[in-house]
Design a binder for these strands. Structure first.
Length: 315
DNA sequence: ATTAGCCAACGTCAGCTTAG
DNA sequence: CTAAGCTGACGTTGGCTAAT
C-alpha cells in the first residue's frame, strides 16, 4: 500500500515535494494529532495530515480514483521509449520524421475533467465565458464597417460615430469586416488618437471611446496613427483597404492573407490560454502529490502503531 | 564587461478532437 | 464532412545568474 503512491508518481513531481516533506515529518511526531483532516468524496476517504505551514498546499487537490494520468504510467513509458529510439539512432532524424513518430499524450484537460466528473472534489478547468457575457454591442444591432486592434490587443469597432470596444467573440462574428492593426497606439479608452484612412475619406479622432470627427484625406492605401497633439504620424499601420481598386486575384490573395492573420491571432490567444491552463493543471497535480505523500506517511505511522500494540498484546 | 547556461514565455505548425 | 478549437512539439527571444 505504501509503495503504491510514491512509486507510480512522476519522479520529477516526487522530488519536488520530498524536500518539503522532510521538514513536515518532524512537525508531525504524533499521528493522532489534531491537525488531521478527513477529505471525503463519493469514492474514497482520505486522511490528510496538515501542519501549520502546509495548509495552503492542500487546497485545490485532486482526489481521484485510479484513472489519473499519473497513475497510468503506460502511456508515458511508450512516449519515452519512442524518443529514446530516436536518440539512439545516431543519425539525427529530421524534425518532420520525429514529429511523425511522436505519439500524442492524452489531453491534460480531458483527463482532469474526467477526474472531476468522477469526483466532486476535483476542481474543473473551467471554460472561460466571462468575456462572452460582457454587454458589448451586438453585431446584429449595428454592424460596424471596420475593426481596429490596438497594440494592447484591444479591439474597437467604428460604428455610428462611436468607438465600440469589442470582445474576441464579437470580432469572430464580424466576418468580412475590415481589420486594422494599430501599432504603438494608446488604448482608445484612455488616450486619444487620430485614425486616418488615407485611401478613403475617413479619419477618426478617437478619445474616451468616442469618435469625435471624420474627415477626407489623401489616397494612399494605408492607415496612420497620429498623436492628437503633434498631428504627426506615429506609425503607418497595415490594413486592408475597404474599397480600393484591386484586381480580383489580388483581392483573393489579400483575403487569404487576412484569414491567415486572423487564424494566427486566434491560435496565439489559444496557445496562451492553453499554457495558463496547463500550469493550473500541473499545480493541481503537485497538490495531489503533496496530499498523497501525507496520506501515505500517516498510514505508515498508523500501521506502525498498530503493530506495536499487537506486539505488546502478544507478549 | 562579457560569455555561457538555464529558464520561462512566446509564436507557429501540425495533428487530433469536437461541434454543427 | 468541415471548420474551429485545443494542445504537443519545436524554435526563438529575453531576462537572470554564475563564471571568466
Amino acid at each position: 500500500m505504501d509503495t503504491s503512491v510514491s512509486s507510480q508518481l512522476d519522479s520529477s513531481l516526487n522530488d519536488s515535494v520530498t524536500d518539503g516533506e522532510k521538514d513536515h515529518r518532524e512537525a508531525n511526531a504524533s499521528p493522532a494529532a489534531s491537525n488531521q483532516v478527513l477529505l471525503q468524496t463519493e469514492s474514497e476517504v482520505a486522511v490528510v495530515q496538515l501542519s501549520d505551514s502546509q495548509t495552503s498546499s492542500v487546497q485545490g487537490v485532486i482526489q481521484a480514483p485510479q484513472t489519473s494520468v499519473i497513475q497510468s504510467p503506460q502511456v508515458q513509458t511508450v512516449q519515452i521509449a519512442t524518443v529514446a529510439e530516436l536518440e539512439d539512432d545516431g543519425s539525427v532524424a529530421d524534425t518532420q520524421k520525429r514529429r511523425e513518430l511522436l505519439t500524442r499524450r492524452p489531453s491534460y484537460r480531458k483527463i482532469l475533467n474526467e477526474l472531476s466528473s468522477d469526483s466532486p472534489a476535483v476542481p474543473k478547468i473551467e471554460e472561460e465565458k466571462a468575456e462572452d457575457d460582457t454587454p458589448v454591442s451586438s453585431p446584429t444591432e449595428s454592424v460596424p464597417n471596420s475593426i481596429y486592434q490596438t497594440s494592447t490587443g484591444q479591439y474597437i469597432a467604428i460604428a455610428q460615430g462611436r468607438a465600440i470596444p469589442l470582445t474576441s467573440s464579437t470580432v469572430e462574428a464580424l466576418q468580412g469586416a475590415q481589420t486594422l492593426t494599430v501599432t504603438g497606439s494608446p488604448t482608445p479608452q484612455t488616450g486619444a488618437a487620430i485614425l486616418q484612412a488615407a485611401d478613403s475619406p475617413h479619419q477618426f479622432f478617437v478619445q474616451g471611446g468616442q469618435v469625435l470627427f471624420q474627415a477626407a484625406t489623401g489616397d494612399i492605401p494605408a492607415y496612420q496613427l497620429r498623436s492628437p497633439n503633434s498631428g504627426l504620424a506615429q506609425s503607418i499601420v497595415m490594413a486592408a483597404s475597404p474599397s480600393s481598386m484591386q484586381s480580383p486575384s489580388s483581392q483573393h490573395a489579400e483575403e487569404i492573407t487576412r484569414k491567415r492573420e486572423v487564424r494566427l491571432m486566434k491560435n496565439r490567444e489559444a496557445a496562451r490560454e492553453c499554457r495558463r491552463k496547463k500550469k493550473e493543471y500541473v499545480k493541481c497535480l503537485e497538490n495531489r502529490v503533496a496530499v498523497l505523500e501525507n496520506q501515505n506517511k500517516t498510514l505508515i505511522e498508523e500501521l506502525k502503531a498498530l503493530k506495536d500494540i499487537y506486539c505488546h498484546k502478544a507478549e
